[in-house]
Amino acid sequence: MEGRVAGDEQGPAKEVPPSASLAERIEWLIQNMWPSGVPAPRNNVETAGAIAAGSDEAISSTTVWKLRTGRQDNPQFKTLTALASFFGVPIGYFGFSSESEPIGEELTLKALRREIGAGDIRTEVLRALVDLSPQTRSVVEEMILAAARADRTPSNRDDEPGTD
């Protein structure tokens, strides 16, 4: 599960709302945009170590804890720069830009692409979607959303292999 912290079974990434707090934004990054190839952290010490190693900026586990819990909502610019660098997001993601809503949508799509992988959706299917009329695309969109809602219901989760 690339881009996810180990043990996260919440399903597809949800978009970060424009009104999200700094703590919510940072937690979303950790849960959805964790770089592939970097072992998933089990605690704030490992999170801080990975960010420091990946961004060449010292960040303490206490700072990570404060940011994740909302006890610190005005970090140093170098801390935000380290987070942006590590997670590959623009500094504006943290709410210092009027563009925060489009950035959130862009990151949600990026996280989704990482989650489903390149081979999970065939290219010819995507091409076929592009060729559909707007009305047919709307029907397909509703079908996909209905399937996603049905898949999230507890009764469907009980039918999954290995849940006995």
Rank of each mutant, 00 (worst) to 15 (best):
Asp159Thr: 04
Trp34His: 04
Trp34Phe: 02
Ala82His: 12
Gln76Ser: 07
Ser21Lys: 11
Gly117Lys: 15
Leu145Cys: 02
Ser55Pro: 15
Ala84Ile: 02
Lys78Glu: 09
Gln135Asn: 12
Gly70Phe: 00
Pro12Gln: 03
Leu129Pro: 12
Glu15Trp: 01
Leu83Gln: 09
Ile51Ala: 10
Met1Glu: 12
Glu160Met: 10
Gly11Phe: 00
Ala40Ser: 15
Ile26Tyr: 01
Glu2Asp: 09
Leu109Gln: 15
Glu27Ser: 15
Asp164Tyr: 06
Ala148Gln: 06
Glu27Met: 15
Ser61Asp: 12
Val89Lys: 04
Glu115Met: 04
Arg113His: 12
Pro35Val: 11
Glu27Ala: 15
Ile103Lys: 01
Glu160Cys: 09
Gly119Leu: 03
Val5Asn: 10
Glu46Arg: 11
Gln72Met: 13
Gln31Cys: 11
Gln76Ala: 13
Ala52Ser: 14
Ile30Glu: 12
Lys110Phe: 00
Lys110Trp: 00
Val5Pro: 15
Gly49Val: 13
Ala146Ile: 03
Phe87Ile: 04
Ser61Met: 05
Val45Asn: 05
Ala111Leu: 04
Ser133Ala: 00
Asp131Ile: 09
Val139Cys: 07
Val64Cys: 08
Gly11Asp: 01
Glu99Thr: 10
Glu105Trp: 00
Ile26Pro: 05
Glu160Pro: 06
Arg4Tyr: 13
Leu22Ser: 04
Thr63Arg: 10
Ala147Gln: 14
Ala53Asn: 09
Gly37Ser: 06
Pro35Asn: 08
Glu57Cys: 07
Phe96Arg: 11
Thr47Val: 15
Ala128Tyr: 00
Gly92His: 02
Asp120Phe: 10
Ala148Pro: 15
Gly37Cys: 07
Arg137Ile: 07
Glu46Ile: 09
Pro39Ser: 14
Val130Pro: 14
Pro102Val: 07
Val139His: 12
Thr163Pro: 13
Ile116Glu: 13
Ala150Tyr: 08
Glu15Leu: 01
Glu57Ser: 09
Leu112Val: 05
Leu109Tyr: 09
Ile116Arg: 12
Leu83Arg: 11
Pro35Glu: 06
Ala6Trp: 04
